[in-house]
Simulated assay, not measured.
Amino acid sequence: MNSPSRPFSVTLLGFDAALSSTITGAMDLFALAGVSWQRIHQQPVTPFFSVQLATLHGHPVTTVNQLKLHAHCALQDVEHTDLLVVPTIGGDLNEILTATRPLHAHIHRLWQGGADIAANCTGTFLLAETGILNHKVATTHWGYARQFRERYPEVNLQPAKMVTQQDNVYCAGGGMAWFDLTLLLIERYCGHQVASDTAKSHVLDLSRPRQTIYAGSRQHKFHQDTDILNIQNYMEQHFTEALTLTGLAHQHNMTPRTLIRRFKQACGITPLHYLQALRLEQARKYLEVSTMSLDTIVTAVGYEDVSSFSRLFKRHTGLAPSQYRSQYAKR
């Protein structure tokens, strides 16, 4: 799809309390694909997308930062679009999901008419409410993953991923992942070179495959099991030591089986994976703020083998330790 015979039509869905940058930022990137890079290099301008904001009945919407956006058209009047984008929910999740129910039928109508559907961050909740995500791979903001899983058990949620795709349905992770999503969609319609040129002209990275880089261990403490919270607090203070499941269970008056069951029920992961998260989080901090060698860091966070640690680090962050330090170290 490198040379479209017509601009592709993109419709941004507008509703009250959406995150404004998700709407306006995506509109800018789509509208400037084939434009910004060409202007910089004094080449002929060829817009690849026709972009519009559609709202219920064409009414203006007020975003979460009180910016008032005027619609180009009513959602009911959109008969066809190549792509429909659902922005991030910036307000109270339950309130907005209730208020946006009248949008469901139109999202379904356009999807059944062949439109690609994309949702960003908590906008994936709105998309999941329509049922379109059932039995499909999806992602959402890492901080809302547990709530998403509980609410939509039929969705194959993969919160470590920055962007997911199955069939013609796309999802993106945390709030500003809209530019990862938009660049992926530009690549889908126009090819890699156009996406790369658009990214470079806006000083953006073309590929950020995982959002676990930004998710700390605190995401696993949003629960009410005080016994497990006590165990987590203990692990946070002693993660550099040789902790064992049997030792943790005995110290907190549980059997290993009970500890695993309750820990996973409360946190969504096993005690071993939580221990790994603590150690990786500390390693990331060392890489960001210190000049310690990798060998020293590995020992300092409770590991012994540098090679196995490096593989684990890359599996969780998508970057080798040296790449992570180069990208995130504070200068």
Rank of each mutant, 00 (worst) to 15 (best):
G174T: 00
R151V: 01
L67A: 06
E187M: 08
G90R: 05
F125G: 08
T63M: 10
A138T: 09
I269Q: 05
E288Y: 02
P44R: 09
P153K: 06
L127D: 05
I117C: 02
L248Q: 09
N2Q: 08
V298F: 11
L12R: 00
D16V: 00
N120R: 12
A26W: 00
D116E: 02
L69Q: 09
R149D: 14
I231W: 13
L53M: 10
H72T: 13
M176P: 14
T182C: 12
Q224P: 06
A145I: 02
G175P: 08
V64N: 13
N65P: 03
N233W: 13
H202N: 15
C171F: 00
F15Q: 03
Q276V: 03
R218P: 11
Q193K: 12
A160W: 01
T182A: 09
R146F: 04
N156F: 03
I40C: 05
I260R: 15
Q158T: 12
T130N: 01
F239H: 01
N230I: 03
Q42W: 08
A215T: 03
A115S: 11
T62I: 03
M235Q: 10
R146I: 01
L280R: 00
T122I: 00
S310I: 06
A199I: 04
D227S: 15
D227L: 14
H135A: 08
G113T: 12
T139N: 08
I117F: 07
P47V: 10
G268M: 09
G175S: 15
G216Q: 09
D225S: 03
H141V: 00
C73H: 06
A26F: 00
G174V: 00
N156Y: 02
V155K: 04
L69G: 06
G123R: 10
Q276A: 07
A177M: 09
E95Q: 15
F8N: 07
A215P: 05
T122A: 14
F48N: 06
G173S: 13
D116I: 00
A195K: 06
I132H: 00
L93Y: 01
T255G: 09
S207R: 08
S307V: 15
I132Q: 03
H220M: 12
S201M: 11
